[in-house]
């Protein structure tokens, strides 16, 4: 597979994942703020903004935050920006995608640009994001079932799960971390833990595993270390390892070594980690370390398979 094509597929998947994450955080928060006091709602929005942009938007109201996170094209973290970039990448490699995947993504992108989208948002904002979310779920299904699970699909998987592992880690950091920006926020209450699970579509799976007794430690254990839940960090890291085993089938073991070593190291950390060992502020460092390791894997993938120096393989 051409290196440029792999690059586009990888980024297309990352942006789709980012769009899905943004849409879900906003939809869930819009739905839950109805039951919150104004102070709690403000804290909740600040958490969402911090998770999506890394900035603290103290004093901002729901309207301003959603506006910025949904439609602001100058904001790289907004839903439209992510969809725009996902579609741009897809367009460059259209001949590599199935018609269904391309047309679905194209329609999704055009839909959010449509003037009626704004009017839906004005009147039923949560519905707008639920719709986007549903379309993104469909896109995931169409991608799974209409593409050959060859090298291109592996790069999609790689992009999706590196992105997801980082997004979930960053989100957990807002709730469990003691560093900035979390220390500026009031400590989460029971309801906030519930919302956190919903941010990761994890409420029902969590309850099946641990009952509805919401304890911060078990929530962290579940979202970090559960082997079978698709939005846990461990699950994503497993997919990254799997994908890396299948990309670039013609590359010799010596070239693959570095990527596989880095992915294996991260896998060991989440396979054998336990929340009991992450007490007393060490969870902060653990989460930062996961994010950093994901970045290292990304860099290694680029150096090995995509932006490599031609001299090294001649």
């Amino acid at each position: 597979m051409l290196a440029r094509v792999a690059d586009s597929l990888y980024w297309m998947a990352r942006y789709v994942e980012r769009a899905e994450h943004s849409a879900r955080l906003i939809a869930v928060n819009l739905e839950s703020m109805i039951e919150q006091s104004p102070e709690d709602a403000e804290a909740a929005w600040r958490r969402v903004a911090a998770a999506l942009t890394g900035e603290d938007l103290a004093g901002a109201d729901a309207f301003a935050v959603t506006q910025a996170l949904a439609f602001d094209r100058t904001n790289a973290a907004s839903l439209v920006s992510s969809l725009h970039l996902a579609r741009d990448n897809a367009r460059q490699v259209r001949e590599q995608l199935s018609t269904e995947v391309w047309e679905h993504l194209n329609k999704l992108y055009l839909g959010t640009r449509d003037p009626t989208a704004r009017s839906v948002w004005m009147h039923q904002p949560a519905l707008f994001f639920r719709q986007a979310l549903e379309d993104l779920f469909t896109l995931g299904g169409v991608t799974y079932s209409t593409l050959r699970h060859g090298e291109g699909w592996r790069f999609l998987e790689l992009g999706r799960h590196i992105e997801r592992a980082q997004l979930v880690s960053r989100l957990l950091d807002i709730y469990f971390g003691v560093g900035s920006p979390s220390r500026l926020l009031p400590p989460p209450k029971y309801f906030d833990w519930l919302v956190l699970l919903k941010f990761c579509t994890a409420f029902e799976p969590y309850c099946k595993e641990y009952t509805a007794a919401l304890k911060p430690e078990t929530i962290a254990q579940f979202l970090l270390f559960d082997a079978e839940f698709p939005h846990s960090v461990r699950f994503s890291v497993d997919r990254v390892v799997e994908a890396l085993g299948h990309v670039a089938p013609g590359a010799p073991p010596s070239r693959r070594a570095n990527c596989e070593r880095l992915a294996g190291r991260l896998k060991a950390a989440v396979d054998f980690g336990h929340i009991d060992e992450l007490t007393g502020g060490t969870i902060d460092a653990f989460l930062v370390n996961i994010t950093r390791q994901c970045e290292q894997i990304h860099d290694a993938v680029y150096a090995t398979y995509i932006a490599y120096d031609a001299e090294t393989v001649l």
Binding site: M1, L2, A3, R4, A6, E151, V247, A248, P249, G250, A251, R255, Y305, I306, Y308, A310, V313, L314
Partner: peptide, 15 residues
Amino acid sequence: LVNDNVVYARTTSGL
């Protein structure tokens, strides 16, 4: 890219 007057495509598996 061209090396030694031979044309190659950059693929993930090499040239």
